[in-house]
Each structure stands twice: as structure tokens, then as C-alpha cells.
């Protein structure tokens, strides 16, 4: 579904993503982990077209999409749940959700999707008319994912969705991701902490200094922390 082929990105003269290749098929969760500053966020922003792709190519269903503006990328079916959630605090929960429609290609099946999303994240329906800024961090994260799913994406990118959340809330969020995967969505999940997604993702790539240093199967990933510590040392 989503394919990165030796993708590069830089800020000015500084090369931040240096030839990253990976694929995510529909119904798969692929993990991307690595230390702070490794280039994880930049990789996701490059997929979105928000940071220019300086080398290599991003493909969606076999078609090159690198070079498209962000708005067009979203409409092609890639949604990003950004780092720090970026909820519109002064808009209501319902308005935040409606913004997700901006990236949706057609209204077909919208009612059914809405029902499904409300089932997945009941808080979103419960607090419809509240300002989104009044929600807790975990509720905001659920709103951010719900908002991304309104666009009916075929690829979902998540940037550290667990950041700052209590363990029980993280379980809720990861549980929802399983449901989303079951719908056939391709999920690329960025996290800093390996243990969160080890065993959960179908594959986990370790990014450091802009390069993928190793790729782990779920079994290997059980022992990730030690391996990464050894590798990065």
C-alpha cells in the first residue's frame, strides 16, 4: 500500500532522513522507533508532502506521490495523527471531527463510518459540544485519531500517540489501532519506546540518525530494548 524507497529529507543543508526504505501493506501495523531526533517525525512529514522529498520516492498503491502538496496527499488517502495531537482547542469536539472531512474524497458511506468511529471512541460522541481544549490528554488523542479516520484513509500515520498518556489510556489507543487495522488500513506507528509496540506491530524498524539500523520481527522485538541499547551504545 505505502512504500518508501530510499527517501531522503533535509532541513537546509542538514540531512535528516537518509535513504529510508520501508513498506506497509493494508491490514498491517509497522512500527518505526528510534531516539529523539532520529528523524521519525520528519519521515512522516515527508510522506505527507509537508517536508519536501529530497531524494528517493514515496509510492501509494504503486504510484509516486512525492511532490504532491500536503492537501492533495491527504485526499489520496493518507492521514496523519501528528506529534502533539494538534487538536483545535477553541473549536468544539464536533467541529474538530468535521475538519477531518476536509481530507475525505467522497461522502459515500459517511454515516456508517461515523457510527463506527463513535463506537470506537465513545468520548467523541459524549463530549460533542465541548471545546476540545477541555478534554484530557487521552481524550484529545482519541479525538485526533477519530478525526484522522473521518477522512477514510487507506494509510494511517501516527506520531508518538502514547506520549504523555497513562498506561491504561495507551491500552485503549492501541486497542483502537487493532480495530482500525482489522478494517484493512495500513498503519505506520512511530514511537520512541520500543516496548510499547514490540509484539504488537507486524514489523518494527529502528531508526537512528536518519537511517534504518535494523528491522525486527515481533519475536525479535520482545528483546528489543536490550538490542537497541547495545546497538546505539
Amino acid at each position: 500500500m505505502l512504500e518508501l524507497d530510499r527517501v531522503e529529507a533535509r532541513y537546509g543543508a542538514i540531512s535528516v532522513v537518509r535513504g529510508v526504505s520501508l513498506t506497509v501493506a493494508g491490514g498491517e501495523i509497522v512500527g518505526l522507533i528510534g531516539p529523539n531526533g532520529a528523524g521519525k517525525t520528519t519521515t512522516l512529514l515527508t510522506i505527507m508532502g509537508e517536508v519536501p522529498c529530497a531524494g528517493g520516492v514515496v509510492r501509494l498503491r504503486g504510484k509516486a506521490i512525492s511532490g504532491l502538496p500536503t492537501e492533495a496527499t491527504v485526499r489520496r488517502g493518507i492521514a496523519l495523527v501528528p506529534e502533539g495531537r494538534h487538536i483545535f482547542a477553541n473549536l468544539t469536539v464536533a467541529e474538530n471531527l468535521r475538519l477531518g472531512l476536509a481530507g475525505r474524497q467522497s461522502r459515500d458511506g459517511l454515516d456508517a463510518d461515523m457510527d463506527w468511529i463513535h463506537g470506537l471512541f465513545p468520548v467523541v460522541g459524549q463530549f460533542r459540544e465541548r471545546p476540545a481544549g477541555a478534554l484530557s490528554g487521552g481524550q484529545q488523542q482519541q479525538l485526533a485519531i477519530a478525526r484522522a479516520m473521518i477522512a477514510a484513509p487507506t494509510v494511517l500515520l501516527l506520531d508518538e500517540p502514547s506520549l504523555g498518556l497513562a498506561p491504561s489510556v495507551i491500552d485503549t489507543v492501541l486497542g483502537a489501532l487493532s480495530d482500525i487495522r482489522a478494517r484493512g488500513v495500513a498503519i505506520l506507528l512511530v514511537e520512541q519506546r520500543a516496548q510499547l509496540i514490540a509484539g504488537f506491530a507486524d514489523r518494527t524498524h529502528v531508526l537512528s540518525n536518519g537511517r534504518i539500523r535494523m528491522s525486527l520481527t515481533p519475536d525479535e522485538a520482545q528483546d528489543t530494548d536490550r538490542m537497541i541499547a547495545a546497538y546505539l551504545a
Binding site: E71, F88, E95
Partner: peptide, 22 residues
């Protein structure tokens, strides 16, 4: 809808664009 998009863009243009707001 355009009004909603304008309000979103006024508070965080980049986040709005990442949602597909033109």
C-alpha cells in the same frame, strides 16, 4: 464549511493543512 476551515487555519494553519484543508 469554509468558515470552519478559516477558523481552524487561523488557529493552526499547518495542522489544518495536514487534515486536507486547502
Amino acid at each position: 464549511t469554509i468558515g470552519l476551515h478559516m477558523r481552524a487555519a487561523a488557529s493552526d494553519f499547518r495542522a489544518a493543512r495536514l487534515l486536507g484543508v486547502r
